[in-house]
Design a protein around this nucleic acid. Structure first.
Length: 418
RNA sequence: GAGCCCGUAGCUCAGUCGGUUAGAGCGCCAGGUUGUGGCCCUGGAGGUCGUGGGUUCGAUUCCCAUCGGGCUCCCCA
């Protein structure tokens, strides 16, 4: 091969013409469903201030401690956004979106960046879509967020997944639980994995999430947060579960589901798929009632989720789900000779103005080559024009599928195809 | 951040126990049919055998490094 001099950076991929239709189809589905749910789109910059991401997501999380692309220019710190909850909340606070009244139902999609080692379902630049409902702690908001997420997969036809649900409690409940957990783990602290030991002081709940074999024994016997939730959080969780039941959304309660970001409170959930291999999380989210205040706004409860678009598309491939139709064009003009080619070029416009998609060969290649190209482009019709047609003012319209031809004036062709 | 596997044409892969011009299928271009695609036949283009170094008379083949990819762990979308 002529070796490429320039290539993409590690873990960053091009979406090529054969792939882009299914991306567009997915994006269209998300836009349509969001409209049905009355979510409004928000678009924020690719880069944010480093401090926002650190404060928003949490200093000790993997994302912040080892996965962000950050650099300094002049006096400013820049970071490529690793997720969008913190930036959306930043926009909410910065632009006083609470003043629009009611709770803000926002959705987004776009590229995110994390400096990880790439593998299947994991890239350094990848795409997420998600929603954030900011301004209410009503269980109904949690349920709508989950319902929207499930709706996308349902509409696409991905059914093979597991929805895991948990409540990680409000601050009051968490304090009691964290203490109980630490009391339980403390006597055996030296037997826990290195990572878990590090988390013990700052974020003991994440130990529950550990997959280190040496931790499993302790995790199994550890106290469960449900037993430490106060009345309010218990009721909130119960209402979320009941509404999901009423909607017929299946889930399993996983008391060990904690999730990566520090900002989660109460409802936490994750959608996993057996069709993805090792990186099996399709989507995840939860309630983050403290984040708005953490970022400098008025105390404002909120809930949201984010879903990986690459992973959704991988699942589609595994399940042989086709999101996009094959490419096609209505008319391919096959021209013979220079005069005919000039005619073709000017008459493409008339076809397009009538809403008929049209293309042609630009190079004056052989008829066979043009027919072959028309076939490859999946042309519905070829419009064949040569000396004979130009003189007669009647053109050959060939239905490529039926292999059927007729002679028509250009006006009649437009009328027939419109 | 750690471990294992892999890197030959645009794509999917053979092959070389180290030795003249490195192969196939698909794809691409052209001809068979000087005005007709999809099937078929024929021909052509396209590879410094990922890159750099080492061993050797000689390396695509053996060794090392590096880059890229895959899988697993950690974590997450």
């Amino acid at each position: 091969m002529a070796k490429a001099k320039f290539t993409t950076h590690l873990g960053m991929v091009d979406i090529l013409p054969d792939e882009s239709p299914k991306w567009r189809a997915l994006e269209n589905i998300i836009h349509q469903e969001a409209a049905l749910f009355n979510f409004e789109e928000i678009r924020t910059p690719i880069m944010e201030q480093t401090e926002l991401i650190v404060r928003g997501i949490g200093q000790l999380t993997d994302i912040v401690s080892k996965e962000i692309f950050a650099f300094t220019k002049g006096d400013s710190n820049y970071v490529l956004r690793p997720e969008l909850t913190a930036p959306v909340v930043r926009a909410f606070v910065e632009h006083h979106l609470d003043q629009r009244g009611g709770s803000q139902k926002l959705y987004y999609m776009g590229p995110m960046f994390r400096a990880e080692r790439p593998q299947k379902g994991r890239q350094r630049q990848f795409h997420q879509f998600g929603v954030e409902v900011i301004g209410t702690d009503a269980p109904a908001a949690d349920v709508e967020v989950i319902a929207f997420m499930m709706r996308i997969y349902q509409r696409i036809g991905i059914k093979n997944f597991e929805l895991k649900l948990n409540s990680v409690g409000d601050p009051e409940s968490r304090e009691g639980y964290k203490q109980a957990l630490k009391d339980f783990l403390a006597p055996n602290l030296d037997k826990l994995s290195e990572v878990s030991q590090k988390r013990f002081e700052k974020n003991p709940m994440r130990i529950l999430d550990s997959k280190e074999p040496e931790d499993q024994e302790f995790i199994k016997q550890a106290p469960v947060i449900q037993d430490y939730l106060n009345e309010e959080s218990t009721q909130h969780f119960k209402k979320v579960c009941e509404a999901l039941d009423a909607l017929g959304i299946n889930y399993t309660i996983d008391p060990y589901l904690v999730r990566g970001m520090d900002y989660y409170t109460r409802t936490a959930f994750e959608l996993t798929s057996p069709d993805l291999g090792s990186q099996d999380a399709l989507a995840g989210g939860g309630r983050y009632d403290l984040l708005v205040e953490e970022i400098g706004g008025q105390p404002t409860p909120a809930v949201g989720f984010a879903a990986g678009m690459e992973r959704l598309l991988i699942a589609c491939d595994e399940l042989d789900i086709k999101l996009a139709d094959d490419k096609k064009v209505d008319v391919y003009i096959v021209s013979l000779g220079e005069k005919a080619r000039d005619w073709a070029l000017t008459h493409l416009s008339a076809l397009r103005e009538a809403g008929i998609s049209a293309t042609m060969d630009y190079q004056g290649r052989s008829m066979k080559a043009q027919m072959k190209d028309a076939n490859r482009e999946n042309a519905h019709y070829t419009l064949i024009v040569g000396e004979n047609e130009l003189e007669a003012g009647e053109f050959t319209l060939r239905n490529m599928k039926e292999s059927d031809e007729q002679s028509l004036s250009f006006a009649n062709i437009i009328e027939k195809l419109s």
